Computed example of a mutant assay.
Amino acid sequence: MERNLAYVALFAALIAVLGLIPKITLMSGVPITAQSLGIMLCGTVLGARRGALAVLLFLGLVALGLPLLAGGRGGIGVFFTPSVGYLIGWPIAAYATGWITERFGAGKPLALTAGIASVIGGIVVLYVPGIIGMAAMLDKTLPQASLLALPFIPGDLVKAVLAGLVTAALARARPGAVLSRS
């Protein structure tokens, strides 16, 4: 139990640290950040349930006002910006990424499984609420908001590959630390 709590807190902190990397804000008002890599790693390393809990802890701290999002943003107001769909989608994406890693990772190369899980959960699943949130907050149609999301895809694909490689490296170095495999 304590180990699970420690991992959840550690990965919430990892997401916060990845927010220190400077953001790049696009015309949509949604920034490109390294924090989505943390979301993917929550799922691939911690698994579905613990990964989603780590993200929920992080979002709870943001809602309380801690400036943990890229660019030092925090507070309840961030949930009323074009990023809201992505923020809501983060725990769903971590859960989906972890679920895929848990179900399909046994006996397969972890880097490949975690990378594919990150693409499906951390990009495909995440973009659904992300695009809906952008459409709602920017008063755009879903196709218009989808076009605004296109610039994020190349960077997110790189993050998915990194998540797969980091997860596999962690499994080699400390097999017991990759909870999605246990």
Rank of each mutant, 00 (worst) to 15 (best):
L157H: 08
P154S: 01
S182M: 14
A16M: 04
A171R: 14
A136L: 15
V17P: 06
P129A: 01
A163L: 02
L26R: 07
A54P: 05
P129V: 06
T141Q: 08
V84D: 02
A169V: 07
I39S: 04
L14H: 07
Q144R: 11
V119E: 00
M134S: 07
G121Y: 12
L142Y: 12
A94Q: 03
L147W: 15
A13N: 04
L59G: 04
M134G: 02
A177L: 14
Y127K: 12
R103D: 11
Y127P: 09
L150W: 08
I39Y: 04
A70V: 07
G71W: 12
V128L: 15
G85D: 08
R174V: 14
V84M: 06
G115W: 13
A136N: 07
A70H: 07
A117D: 01
I120D: 00
I116A: 15
L87V: 07
P67C: 10
I123F: 02
L59E: 00
G72I: 14
A149F: 11
P154E: 10
K159E: 13
L138W: 11
L20R: 02
G71S: 11
I76C: 01
L18Y: 05
S182Q: 14
R50D: 15
L110H: 03
A145K: 06
E102M: 03
A160F: 02
P67T: 08
I116G: 08
A114R: 10
L162V: 01
